[in-house]
Design a protein around this nucleic acid. Structure first.
Lengths: 247, 247
DNA sequence: AAGCTAGTTGAATCCCTCG
DNA sequence: TCGAGGGATTCAACTAGCT
C-alpha cells in the first residue's frame, strides 16, 4: 500500500498499521523529525474519577511523609511505558539531532516528559497551543491550552538552517473536523517548521493527516502511520483533495 | 514583627523568616488560598550550575541586578522534596477546598505537579502565563511561557462564589523590577481571584510582594513570608507606597 | 526606537586519570 | 614525569520579536 501511494505522491504517504510495528520496519537515519499527536490517555478515566481517587488516596495520608508516586497512575504508568516505547523506536529511525514534537494535554504532560526522556530524547522545552475557546468553568481556570513537548535526538546544533520559532501559538479549533482531536492546519504548518528545510517528517499517529498535509504544504516530505483503517483512508482523501485545491 | 505590622495594616503582613518554619506556627483553617512563586531551582543540568548563587547566575544583568535570592540552587530531587514539604505544611493551615496556585517554569513543571500531589493537594490543572518576550533561540521554540500549577485542598465545590477565570494570561514583564522574578501586578490581580471574596491569602515566598499587593487591591487580606531580609523590607515599603498612591 | 529577555551555546580552559 | 584524553567548568557571543 505504501509503495502504491508513494508512487503516486512522491512526497507523502499514509501507512495503515500499528505504530509500534511499522516503526521497526524503517531503516535508521530515515527521518529528520517526529511530529505527532498521540492518543492522550489509553486508559481514559474521567477527571471526576481521577479527582475522587486522588482525594481518597491522600486523605488518609495523615502526618506521615508523602508516598513516592501517585497511586492512581496505573493507567498513566502504562501510558508512559507505551509512549516511551514508540518514542524510542521513532528515535531509532531518526537522524542525529532530529527534533521531536509531541502534543499532549495538561494532565499527561509530566508523563510525556518522562517518556520522552526515557526514550533517549533530550527534552528541550514545552511550547503552548492556546485554543482560546474552551468551555468556561465557574470558580476555576479554564483548561484552554494544550502543550507541545519537544526535544531532540542528541545534540541539536544552533547552526541548523531553521529560524527562531514562537513558543505560544493561538489558533481556535477547526470547524468540521474529520478527527475528534484534529489540530488547526495553520498550527501544524507553524510547528513542522522546526524541521530542516526539505526534511522527511514522521507522524506515527496521523489521524486526519494534518501533520502530513502541513508538512507537504511547507515543502517537506512526510510519512504518516494510522492504525484505524477508516482514518487512514479519510486522511489520504483529505490530503489529496486539499493539495489539489491548493495547486 | 508580624504583630506590629498587622496592627498598622489590618489586611496584610510580610513576615520575615523561613517558609518551612513560619508555616508551622499558623493554626489550621487560617487561609483561604495559597498563591506563590517559589524559587525554581531550574538552573542547568550540571551540579555546578545548580550550585551557582543567583547573583552569579544572573551576573549578565550588570550593576542594576537585584540582590540575590535564597533557595534557587537545589537539584531537582531535593527541590521536589522541599516543595512537597512546604506544600504539605501550607495545606495543613488552609481551609478545606482552598485553592493553591504555584508559578513554575517548563523545566520544573513535572516536578511541581509531583510535589503538589505528594503534599495531598488535588491537582486540577495548569494555567499559562504568556510572557510575550523571551530570548529567541535559532532553530528552537521560544521558552515564552511560565506555568501556574493549581489545585485544591480536597473537594472544590462548583458553587463557590467565584467566576470563571481565563486559562492563558498574556502580560509582559514589568519594568523596573525590585525582584528578578517579579511578576506583572495585573497578572497577580487576575490570579488571586481564584480565592473566595474577602478571603485570606498566603504567599510563602513573597519576594517583592506582588501577590500580597494584588490581593489587597482585590479586596482580600494576605500574609506573605519572605526569607531574605532585604526583600522583606523592600516589599513592605513597596506595598505601603503603592497602596498609598492608589488610595 | 531602544531595550529587554527566571538563557543557551560552543569553544577554551582547567583538572584529574591513566598508560 | 609526561602527554593524551575526557569530563567539568567557565566565559563571551549571541538572538529576534515584542513592548
Amino acid at each position: 500500500m505504501s509503495d502504491n501511494i508513494t508512487a503516486i505522491h512522491p512526497s507523502w504517504e499514509i501507512i495503515h498499521g500499528d505504530a509500534l510495528k511499522v516503526l521497526r520496519e524503517f531503516a535508521p537515519n530515515t527521518f529528520d523529525a517526529v511530529i505527532t499527536d498521540p492518543p492522550y490517555a489509553s486508559g481514559g478515566r474521567t477527571q471526576a474519577e481521577k479527582n475522587k481517587s486522588t482525594d481518597k488516596k491522600y486523605s488518609s495520608m495523615g502526618e506521615s511523609a508523602p508516598p513516592p508516586f501517585d497511586g492512581d497512575s496505573k493507567d498513566q504508568r502504562s501510558w508512559t511505558r507505551w509512549a516511551a516505547e514508540w518514542l524510542y523506536d521513532a528515535r531509532k529511525v531518526c537522524k542525529p539531532g532530529a527534533p521531536v514534537c509531541m502534543f499532549i494535554d495538561w494532565r499527561q504532560l509530566p508523563a510525556a516528559t518522562d517518556a520522552l526522556q526515557w526514550a533517549g530524547w533530550i527534552w528541550r522545552g514545552t511550547a503552548v497551543w492556546d485554543k482560546g475557546n474552551s468551555r468556561p468553568q465557574k470558580g476555576r481556570f479554564r483548561q484552554q491550552a494544550e502543550y507541545i513537548v519537544w526535544g531532540s535526538n542528541g545534540d541539536m546544533p544552533i547552526s541548523r538552517p531553521v529560524p527562531c520559532l514562537p513558543g505560544v501559538f493561538k489558533y481556535g479549533n477547526p470547524q468540521n473536523r474529520i478527527h475528534l482531536t484534529e489540530k488547526p492546519l495553520q498550527l501544524m504548518r507553524d510547528v513542522v517548521k522546526i524541521t530542516e528545510p526539505g526534511g522527511h517528517i514522521l507522524d506515527p499517529f496521523a489521524g486526519s493527516g494534518s501533520t502530513v498535509l502541513a508538512a507537504v504544504l511547507e515543502g517537506y516530505s512526510a510519512t504518516g502511520i494510522e492504525v484505524t483503517d477508516a482514518y487512514a483512508a479519510l486522511s489520504r482523501e483529505r490530503i489529496e483533495r486539499e493539495l489539489a485545491q491548493g495547486a
